[in-house]
Nucleic acid binder design. Structure first.
Lengths: 221, 221
DNA sequence: GCCTGTGAACTCGTTCACAGCC
DNA sequence: GGCTGTGAACGAGTTCACAGGC
């Protein structure tokens, strides 16, 4: 009988495991579109260049989803992953920084199904405020952040400002009550305990590529 | 006497180390702007929420840059990092996928100093080809990829297509001779040995935030 | 005294390999 | 027979702690 654990301790779960759950979700969504109903960890690993033992271990933190001798039921596994990742209800996002990247991310809701919705894009530059984005949102003043977070029930803040403003915006987001922040500015910023801050630094990724172009590509990437 | 090793073995260097070098570069660039001439690994760690032993170890793979009792000379360290990361010459980028993200990334050259230059943005959608982006590039046909890579001496490919097309575009990039690829499509793709493929999946990051919003934020993030 | 560079200790994450179940 | 779930073995990455140099 497959079942979901409800008593796991978040502190024992590695962030790497969580990131992979998200990848597994993407995979089973494709399998479902393809009409595949059941898959073993080995078949899943082979198809998506993953490791079967790791898939089993990652999933086992959260319950017993498989059937021995059979593998995993695709649509069932998808439901479990959605449940585990907390995607069964919508998460609302506020973006601060109406530059090219911020505006591009406004469209992001489209690609993430029902799970994420951008409910505001804010900027401090008076000349941008009032402009409407191609996604149909109006750029609002960053001074309205607390009110917007509260009224529109935003939970996630996204920082797409230049580096200089990032820490300040992060502080404002924390004050406004956001508990999860995604930072795209290429600086090391800090949020207090109890607030989850994740940074995505495009410069780091490009510079990594440059490093390996310069010194040679390591075996079997 | 500070000096740079020239004989390190790329296979012994972890990708995590390389990513941190890029972060250190960002830090010393700020220190230089602030007019700080010398910094110890401890001071650097404290200021940017890093670990001092790790800084020393990461740097030590590549040479001896510090002076005992003193620390590191900021502008010297910056030069060494630029050298190590292969940023002393320009790297040219071709983007495939002229959606919002692809177009936003065209502007990216601006934020990365002299090191990276976007030399083309390509799409397969006939209605987009010929359009000019706000960054001043014309969208060209993806069928011209090989010729563009060759003529404009591109080294890095960036994939900003929908998931379905990503593996195909990756294959084309490999055939065209690109050795470093940055993928933004939310799918697991594969490149052959000898080609470095790095994926940045925004959905994964958002879903991670969702997971921790649902189950609680772990101690001291 | 302060600070780097580095072996040694440790922690964390991955992979193996198999008992147990279908 | 096939496959999951999992302890045990392994390996990678981080942190400690100190010898040696300024």
């Amino acid at each position: 009988m497959p079942h979901l654990k409800r008593d796991f301790n978040v502190n024992t779960i590695s962030e790497l495991t969580v990131a992979r759950l998200s990848i597994y979700l993407r995979c089973v969504e494709e399998l479902q579109r393809l009409g595949i109903e059941t898959i073993s960890s080995q078949a899943l690993a082979k198809r998506y260049h993953l490791n079967s033992a790791q898939i089993r271990k990652d999933l086992a933190y959260f319950g017993e989803f498989g059937v021995r001798g059979m593998g995993y039921n695709v649509s069932e596994l998808r439901q479990y992953l959605i449940e585990i990742l907390g995607l069964s209800r919508e998460r609302r996002i506020v973006i601060v920084g109406a530059g090219n990247l911020g505006i591009a991310l406004c469209h992001y809701s489209r690609f993430t199904g029902e799970s994420f919705l951008v409910v505001g894009i804010l900027d401090s530059n008076a000349s941008k405020i009032g402009e409407s984005t191609p996604a149909g949102l109006l750029v609002e003043s960053v001074s309205r952040l607390p009110e917007i977070v509260h009224q529109r029930e935003a939970e996630i803040g996204v920082i797409t400002t230049p580096g200089e403003s990032a820490q300040g915006v992060c502080n404002l987001m924390v004050e406004a009550g956001l508990k999860a922040i995604l930072n795209f500015a290429p600086v090391q910023i800090k949020a207090p305990d109890g607030v989850l801050l994740r940074s995505v630094d495009l410069r780091v990724h490009l510079e990594e590529l440059s490093f390996f172009l310069t010194h040679g590509i390591p075996d079997s990437g």
